[in-house]
Measured scan of single mutants.
Amino acid sequence: LHIEINVNGLRIELHNVSEELAERIREILEKVDDREEARRLAEELIK
């Protein structure tokens, strides 16, 4: 499954994740104000 999410102008592509996991990642990242911090957090979440 390939999912693309957009959060605060940051486009993140997720591969091989469930829709539920992608939604949780999006919800978490929406709470982060700083774009660079959101990017770093996204990288950690999808490892």
Rank of each mutant, 00 (worst) to 15 (best):
L1R: 06
L1A: 12
L1G: 12
L1N: 13
L1D: 09
L1C: 05
L1K: 12
H2G: 07
H2A: 09
H2R: 09
H2P: 07
H2K: 09
H2D: 10
H2N: 10
I3F: 12
I3Y: 09
I3N: 04
I3W: 09
I3D: 02
E4W: 08
E4M: 10
E4P: 02
E4H: 10
E4V: 15
E4F: 09
E4L: 14
E4S: 14
I5E: 01
I5L: 10
I5H: 01
I5M: 07
I5G: 02
I5N: 01
I5R: 00
N6Q: 09
N6T: 11
N6H: 12
N6W: 08
N6A: 06
N6E: 15
N6K: 04
V7A: 06
V7G: 04
V7E: 04
V7S: 06
V7T: 05
V7C: 04
V7L: 08
V7N: 05
V7P: 01
V7W: 09
N8P: 07
N8S: 06
N8D: 11
N8M: 02
N8Y: 01
G9A: 01
G9D: 05
G9M: 01
G9C: 02
G9W: 02
G9R: 01
G9H: 02
G9E: 03
L10A: 04
L10M: 13
L10E: 08
L10D: 06
L10I: 15
R11G: 05
R11N: 11
R11W: 12
R11V: 15
I12H: 01
I12Y: 10
I12E: 00
I12G: 00
I12C: 03
I12R: 00
I12W: 12
E13P: 07
E13V: 15
E13R: 12
E13L: 13
E13W: 15
E13T: 14
L14F: 09
L14C: 03
L14Y: 06
L14G: 02
L14D: 00
L14W: 06
L14N: 00
H15W: 14
H15N: 08
H15C: 10
H15A: 06
H15F: 12
H15V: 10
N16Y: 07
N16P: 02
N16Q: 06
N16L: 08
N16E: 05
N16M: 07
V17P: 05
V17Q: 04
V17T: 06
V17D: 02
V17W: 08
V17F: 07
S18A: 06
S18D: 08
S18F: 03
S18Y: 04
S18H: 06
E19K: 15
E19H: 15
E19V: 14
E19G: 09
E19M: 15
E19Q: 14
E19T: 12
E20F: 10
E20R: 07
E20C: 03
E20N: 06
E20G: 08
L21P: 00
L21D: 07
L21W: 09
A22I: 14
A22K: 04
A22V: 15
A22R: 04
A22F: 10
A22Y: 12
E23T: 12
E23K: 13
E23H: 12
E23L: 13
R24H: 07
R24W: 10
R24M: 12
R24T: 07
R24K: 13
R24Y: 11
R24V: 08
R24N: 05
I25T: 00
I25F: 05
I25N: 00
I25L: 09
I25K: 00
I25Q: 00
I25H: 00
R26H: 04
R26V: 07
R26P: 00
R26M: 09
R26N: 02
E27I: 10
E27V: 10
E27L: 15
I28Q: 05
I28M: 11
I28W: 05
L29A: 03
L29M: 10
L29K: 00
L29F: 13
L29T: 01
L29P: 00
L29Y: 13
L29R: 00
L29N: 01
L29C: 00
E30M: 14
E30A: 10
E30Y: 11
E30K: 11
E30S: 13
E30R: 12
E30W: 12
K31W: 07
K31S: 14
K31M: 12
K31E: 11
K31T: 15
V32N: 09
V32A: 09
V32Q: 07
V32T: 14
V32D: 03
D33Q: 15
D33N: 14
D33S: 14
D33T: 15
D33A: 13
D33H: 15
D33R: 13
D33K: 15
D34V: 04
D34Q: 04
D34H: 04
D34W: 04
D34S: 08
D34I: 04
D34R: 03
D34N: 11
R35N: 11
R35T: 11
R35P: 15
R35D: 08
R35S: 12
R35E: 13
E36S: 08
E36F: 07
E36C: 04
E36G: 07
E36Y: 08
E36Q: 09
E36V: 09
E37L: 12
E37D: 07
E37P: 01
E37Y: 10
E37W: 10
E37N: 05
E37K: 08
E37Q: 11
E37R: 07
E37M: 10
E37I: 09
A38S: 03
A38Q: 08
A38L: 13
A38R: 04
R39L: 15
R39G: 04
R39C: 07
R39I: 15
R39Q: 09
R39E: 04
R39M: 14
R39Y: 14
R40C: 04
R40M: 08
R40H: 07
R40P: 00
R40I: 08
R40K: 11
R40G: 03
R40L: 09
R40N: 09
L41P: 00
L41D: 01
L41Y: 05
L41R: 07
L41W: 07
L41N: 02
L41S: 02
A42Q: 01
A42R: 01
A42I: 15
A42P: 00
A42S: 05
A42Y: 09
E43L: 15
E43F: 14
E43I: 13
E43N: 09
E43P: 01
E43H: 10
E43C: 13
E44Q: 11
E44K: 06
E44P: 01
E44Y: 10
E44M: 10
L45I: 13
L45Y: 08
L45G: 00
L45E: 05
I46V: 12
I46T: 06
I46N: 02
K47N: 14
K47S: 13
K47M: 12
K47R: 13
K47A: 14
K47Y: 11
K47P: 03
K47E: 11
K47W: 11
